[in-house]
């Protein structure tokens, strides 16, 4: 469903952001993307929803290839991908309901279906009672739920979440994470970038770790060493250091 093969990404001024990245994500899988700040998590997610193209290698998402995708194909693809961010990205001058509806309106969804879909999505994230609230009237956790409701509106096959709990307190973090698990258990794949290692350790999901733009650990490849701090990591970290010096 999602496949990256030998992907590299360089930015004009800051240089190499990603190098030699290869992995696959299966249908309905839950994947953590971890690593220190600046290690390339956001960049990988951007490549997945084709906000950017790799300089080398290829990204396949649901039959769309980064090397050949047209603007129209990318738009269509994004309707089937849910995307949420640390900063929620809600429109401040619209109610929760209107924010969710927005995603349907701008993709030309048939008018008759919009109402029912919006209310179903808000119910799914547990915010049916706050439909008419504005973002400023909602807590951080509630705002993130609105963003998640918006991302779910077109029944995505994958939910891409870039540090979705980064701005939330402990309680809200647990709530949002539980919501993502529920979404995943109903069949939607979830790819979640986070540096909250507690969250990663407490659950048993696949973990991909990045460092300096390299994939240094993938629990699907070495299921017996699920933690980045394990000694088996020494080798790859040494590789990371050489990379740094060059």
């Amino acid at each position: 469903m999602i496949r990256l093969t030998d992907v590299a990404k360089e930015y004009p001024r800051s240089g190499t952001a990603l190098a030699q990245i290869s992995f696959q994500v299966k249908k309905g899988e839950f994947v953590f993307l971890t690593g220190p700040s600046g290690s390339g998590k956001t960049t990988i997610l951007k490549l997945l929803y084709m906000d950017d193209k790799p300089n080398r290698g290829e990204v396949w998402v649901n039959g769309v290839s980064s090397t050949t995708a047209s603007g129209r194909e990318i738009s269509r693809l994004r309707r089937r991908i849910g995307i949420v961010f640390q900063d929620f990205r809600l429109l401040e001058d619209r109610t929760a309901e209107a924010n969710v509806r927005f995603a349907l309106e701008v993709t030309g969804a048939p008018k008759a279906t919009i109402r029912a879909k919006v209310s179903r999505a808000l119910t799914q994230v547990g915010l049916a009672s706050k439909a008419t609230s504005y973002p400023r009237e909602l807590s951080g956790g509630e705002q993130q739920r609105v963003a998640i409701a918006r991302s779910l509106i077109n029944d995505p096959f994958v939910l891409i979440a870039d540090e979705p709990t980064g701005n939330l307190d402990e309680r809200a973090t647990r709530g949002v994470f539980q919501l993502l698990r529920d979404i995943n258990s109903s069949g939607t794949a979830v790819i979640m970038a986070t540096h909250d290692l507690d969250l990663v350790r407490r659950s048993n999901y696949r973990t991909i770790e990045l460092n300096h733009g390299r994939l240094v650990f993938d629990s699907a490849e070495s299921p017996l060493s699920p933690r980045p701090s394990d000694p088996t990591m020494a080798e790859v970290e040494a590789a990371g250091d050489t990379q740094e010096k060059s």
């Binding site: 929803y49 129209r72 738009s75 309707r79 089937r80 990205r89 927005f102 995603a103 701008v106 991302s151």
Partner: peptide, 16 residues
């Protein structure tokens, strides 16, 4: 911001 969200949820360029 509105435009970037439109992009994100899959609005076409022409639509934008």
């Amino acid at each position: 911001k509105e435009i970037s969200i439109m992009r994100l949820v899959g609005a076409t360029d022409m639509f934008i």
